[in-house]
């Protein structure tokens, strides 16, 4: 699993303060920690920085590149800021996060990526929003995003499609469709573009104590569908354990076997069943209940783990 570390994100209060104080040490420690935990690239989301982009984007690149060698992903809507950052990159091939299929963004952002030989994350979102159905999202990739890349001679091998994870708390019906989108996108083009998702979006607006369980259960399902890249928190050890279990097919623990079974079921285009679960193990029951909400079989509620399980 190729993890783009998500922890340098303006949504974090700590990051906000560090940015304000230009606390290089904070960002360097975060970068090193993420890379040591397995991040293969680092997402940098500093917000639009309308006032100080000229200063902040290059500063961040220099700060982070002083301590790590991995690709940097510029996660911003400010194209001037992104460009200012790209000009300072000296190490790995950078990533622009992101364009969408909206005409204005799709016009400009791919050209910027091409100019600086950056990879490009492209969202399956058009002017009318994010479609629910898997085939509609695949269509945006095949009919709009990829043709634009071909038009400007942008290598599809540098394209990363992000089919957009939405939260189970409020957008539950999107969750199963996203799995199918990930599955289908791999056959959408030859050679196929890379596929990446923002995993933790699936648990936005979910009480903190349940987020990690929802994230890693969804991850097992997505890995079953073939996911190999994601923007995620590389420091989430339980998540990393699920990745290891599935990638190495480690059947030595009961919970690990369940995650592996879930991935295998999804890979075989089946749904996990209650027979896959040892119902006397509370951890497995919690995973089963989580599968049920992620497949939109049972309506999500914050207290969903407190409800009795059913088949």
């Amino acid at each position: 699993m190729y993890i783009i570390g998500e922890n340098i994100h303006i949504i974090s209060e700590r990051v906000k303060i560090a940015l304000k104080e230009k606390d290089a040490k904070y960002f360097q420690e975060s970068a090193v920690k993420q890379v040591e935990a397995g991040a293969r690239a680092l997402d940098l989301n500093m917000g639009p920085r309308k006032a100080d982009w000229q200063e902040i984007f290059p500063w961040m690149v220099q700060t982070v590149e002083a301590v790590v060698d991995v690709p940097l992903s510029f996660d911003s809507t400010n194209q001037l800021g992104i460009e200012a950052g790209l000009q300072k990159v000296t190490k790995a091939q950078p990533i622009i996060n992101s364009t969408s299929a909206e005409p204005e963004r799709l016009e400009k952002v791919p050209l910027l990526a091409k100019k600086y030989n950056a990879k490009l994350i492209a969202l399956t979102m058009g002017s009318s929003g994010i479609p629910i159905a898997a085939d509609e999202r695949v269509n945006i990739a095949v009919e709009t995003l990829i043709p634009r890349m071909l038009e400007i001679d942008f290598p599809i091998s540098d394209l990363i499609i992000d089919p957009l994870v939405l939260t189970v708390s409020g957008c539950q019906q999107y969750c199963p469709h996203l799995i199918e989108t990930v599955r289908t996108l791999q056959y959408s083009w030859d050679p196929p573009p890379a596929i990446s998702v923002g995993l933790s979006n699936v648990s936005n607006a979910v009480p903190a104590q349940n987020r990690s369980l929802i994230n890693r259960t969804y991850l097992a399902m997505l890995m079953g569908a073939g996911l190999q890249m994601m923007i995620a928190n590389p420091l989430d050890e339980e998540q990393n354990e699920v990745i290891r279990v599935i990638e190495t097919r480690d059947e030595s623990s009961p919970v690990g076997r369940l995650y592996l079974k879930i991935a295998d079921r999804i890979a075989a285009m089946e749904e996990p069943t209650i027979d896959d679960v040892e119902m006397n193990d509370p951890q497995q029951v919690a995973i089963w209940k989580t599968v049920q909400i992620l497949l939109d079989k049972v309506i999500y509620a914050d207290a969903y783990l407190g409800q009795e399980a059913f088949a």
């Binding site: 539950q172 999500y300 509620a301 914050d302 207290a303």
Partner: peptide, 15 residues
């Protein structure tokens, strides 16, 4: 007007 909140309140009341 929210399925998740409707279910959540039923759980809380039932609890």
């Amino acid at each position: 007007m929210d399925v998740n909140l409707a279910k959540q309140l039923n759980i809380l009341i039932s609890d």
